[in-house]
Amino acid sequence: MPYGIRCLFILGALMCSWSAAAAVYQEPRAFLLETFGGTAPPARLLWITSKEQAVIDKILGHELSALRVRYWRAGETSAWILQEIGKEQPITTGIVVNRGRIQRIKVLIYRESRGWEVRYPFFTDQFRGARLDAKLALNRSIDGISGATLSVRAIKKLARLALYFDQQTLAKP
């Protein structure tokens, strides 16, 4: 086989295997340990009521498939590990909320074939300090990334969802 064709074949095979694999940037458990200084508090459960489901519909644009969500809280800090589909695959994201504001967002597992730039701090740092306004939108604009529109949209939805969930856990006794 000619050298050029062989190179193209190998490059194609590499690209296929790369695009199919999930990139784990940080194990969710490690994210929790890092967030809470080495000891993760016990998980708590937030049961989703039908009223909350209606709000989640507005935030995500679709129904949340689960009836309850797990979270971790220590004092005024809560941590959420949430997933939303970018284009075809779920993006697993860790979100830390403190006093109703986002303290940190980290993309933990990225499975899409493109748009992975959302994991970089130049994008995720924009969320630091963001909170929900009365219309359940973020109180600041987040700059997008060309070529990663759907992933950006998914992360913004998850940020709003985590802030909303945090509000609900504080509102419930």
Partner: peptide, 15 residues
């Protein structure tokens, strides 16, 4: 799952 088969939660490595 609930009694009628609705998904309550998925438990994986994080849990």
């Amino acid at each position: 799952l609930t009694d009628d088969g609705r998904l309550i939660e998925r438990l994986g490595a994080v849990e």
